[in-house]
Design a protein around this nucleic acid. Structure first.
Length: 522
RNA sequence: GGCUCGGUACCCAAGUGGUAAGGGAGCGCUCUGCAAAAGCGUCAUUCAGCGGUUCGAAUCCGCUCCGAGCCUCCA
């Protein structure tokens, strides 16, 4: 089996054949650093992080370039608003970007260029386009002439008439065609600017990516990726300016990730219906968020569902009620209402994630109970099937949802095995070790299951105790009370104590070595 | 208005011509003094609707209904 991926350019799944055997030139459009990242960014970068990991696991030597757009109108606006220099704004949000991406386990790119560090290349590229008559200078601005590039709109599969019918294109008399876009914009007073043959100014939005890709990867890339919303105009314009200058195909494969919706509408800054990554991570596990994204195919649109609860009585309420800050006799603050919002999909993913970690914990314990030994394992066919299904799913256009489901049989078998290891014991021990290794192998490609299970489970417990405000001293006291009731065989009393503990959100588990407790799952 | 994509069980979701993966919830069972965890079983004669093509359709074609995205800055 070989890797197949969906190419936006051709509209179909194709076998992946890199331009140079064994090597992949991979470019992903990065963020404009003027604000904190939201969940939509998280989904996109998790998606392309998995693509990177799978390419590498498949044996490719990947050069991964992901840029930072640090010269842009929105950054300038932000700088003016905050009364600081534009570069301070971008520096700050690059740091914030790393904080969020690191939390989500997203790997650093091989090269992470910035627009501000690529000016000579950008200017040279624009000069080349002007010299080749694909671009023209008007006063101190430079525009790309879309009519000079026959392949224009081949990626988004539109035609100029359709776009013009939209009638939302800026009417600028100075452009030869309304679709022409700026390569260089002359500086307005107070803006950061760079010297150029056309005077002080800065690059237009699209040219930077072409210049950065050319500089670090050459004129032809294997894969160019980004969010679906970049297909037009951003990627379309990148193709036009790059290919007009180089006369070779800019990227062989174009990959686009689906949008993240909230309440059935795309999450976006302009609509204001967004959650920043970090505000959601206050309430949920980062790895669970990552897993949530991977339970759906990367090209499909994912809905981020919210469940609204009354902060006072806990009842499930409608969004309208939650926003009205009043539910029957309960009244609450906006902050309380926000804290009571449940992220349905992530909560579900978190349950599954910790089922995996508990399973790994049991496998590790069994594996460590005896020195490692050589020999056959139990159900080798189950292991082999899970492994090949996982790889096949990933090879089929990065079908992470199917890959994840291929681990199910392995997980239930692991639990069965660890709970009652069949004899001979050394065979069970080897099998547990093999299953754990296989789960971790697949997990590494998804960027999941790499934590220390004991630590992850313990940390989650601490987090849930804090979130549910469980009084551990009270729990311990009740546990003592129950212990004496049990030793005296006063089971009715013991059960009454169990009920009290349940009311506190605590589950008690009686083991041969005594009673332990955990936070009750919702 | 134009162009795309989608509608699969109570919920999430894979599957794009060979007879409906997986997960969550629910229910039943095993284990347990009770419980939890874990395991097992059960849970869509059917894939928005209606026609058509085919030996065979969730998958292909046509129409209808519904939802979303893009056409302006967006991941």
């Amino acid at each position: 089996m070989s890797l197949r991926l969906f190419n936006t350019l051709t509209g179909q799944k194709e076998t992946f054949v890199p331009l140079e055997p064994g090597r992949v030139r991979y470019y992903v459009c990065g963020v404009t650093v003027y604000d904190l990242c939201h969940l939509g960014h998280a989904r996109t970068y998790v998606t392309f992080d998995v693509v990177l990991r799978h390419l590498r696991a498949s044996g490719f030597d990947v050069t991964y370039v992901r840029n930072f757009t640090d010269v842009d109108d929105k950054i300038i606006n932000r700088a003016n608003k905050d009364g600081v220099h534009a570069l301070e704004v971008s520096k700050r949000y690059i740091d914030e970007f790393y904080t969020d991406m690191d939390a989500l386990g997203i790997l650093r790119a091989t090269i992470e260029p910035k627009v501000s560090g690529t000016m000579p290349e950008i200017i040279a590229l624009i000069e080349k386009l002007v010299a080749g008559k694909n671009a023209y200078v008007v006063e101190r601005d430079v525009y790309f002439a879309v009519d000079t590039f026959p392949g224009y709109l081949k990626l988004s599969k539109r035609n100029v008439e359709d776009l013009e019918a939209g009638a939302r294109v800026d009417v600028d008399e100075r452009k030869k065609n309304p679709m022409d876009f700026a390569l260089w914009k002359s500086a307005k007073p107070g803006e950061p600017s760079w010297d150029s043959p056309w005077g002080k100014g800065r690059p237009g939005w699209h040219i930077e990516c072409s210049a950065m890709a050319f500089r670090h990867l050459g004129e032809s890339l294997d894969i160019h990726a980004g969010g679906r919303d970049l297909i037009f105009p951003h990627h379309e314009n990148e193709i036009a300016q790059s290919e007009a200058a180089s006369h070779v195909p800019f990227a062989k494969y174009w990959m686009h990730s689906g949008m993240l919706n909230i309440d059935d509408t795309k999450m976006s800054k302009s609509l204001g219906n967004f959650f920043t990554i970090r505000e959601v991570l206050k309430d949920v596990d980062a790895e669970a968020m990552r897993m949530f994204f991977l339970t759906a195919h990367y090209r499909s649109q994912v809905s981020f569902d919210l469940a609204y609860h009354c902060p006072k009585c806990g009842a499930l309420v409608t969004r309208q009620i939650a926003e009205s800050l009043r539910h029957d006799a309960c009244a609450f603050t906006k902050e309380e209402a926000r804290r009571a919002v449940k992220f349905v999909g992530i909560d579900e993913a978190e349950k599954r994630l910790f089922y995996v970690y508990r399973t790994l914990m049991k496998c590790d314990a069994l594996a460590a109970s005896m020195p490692a030994s050589e020999g056959p394992v139990l159900k080798p066919e189950l292991l082999a099937k899970a492994s090949s299904e996982f790889t096949e799913a990933m090879d089929d256009d990065f079908n992470t949802a199917a890959a994840l489901s291929s681990t199910s049989a392995l997980l239930s078998f692991a639990n069965e095995l660890c709970d009652k290891p069949p004899k001979p014991r050394d065979q069970s021990v080897r099998t547990a070790a093999r299953i754990a290794a296989e789960l971790r192998r697949g997990g590494a490609i998804l960027g999941l299951f790499q934590g220390d299970p004991v630590k992850r489970v313990a940390d989650r417990r601490v987090r849930l105790i804090a979130a549910k405000k469980i009084d551990t001293a009270a729990v311990d006291a009740l546990l003592e009370e129950r212990k004496s009731a049990r030793t005296e065989k006063r089971f009715a009393d013991a059960d009454a104590v169990r009920a009290k503990l349940a009311a506190l959100g605590v589950d008690v588990k009686d083991t041969p070595s005594g009673s332990v407790w955990d936070v009750k799952e919702d």
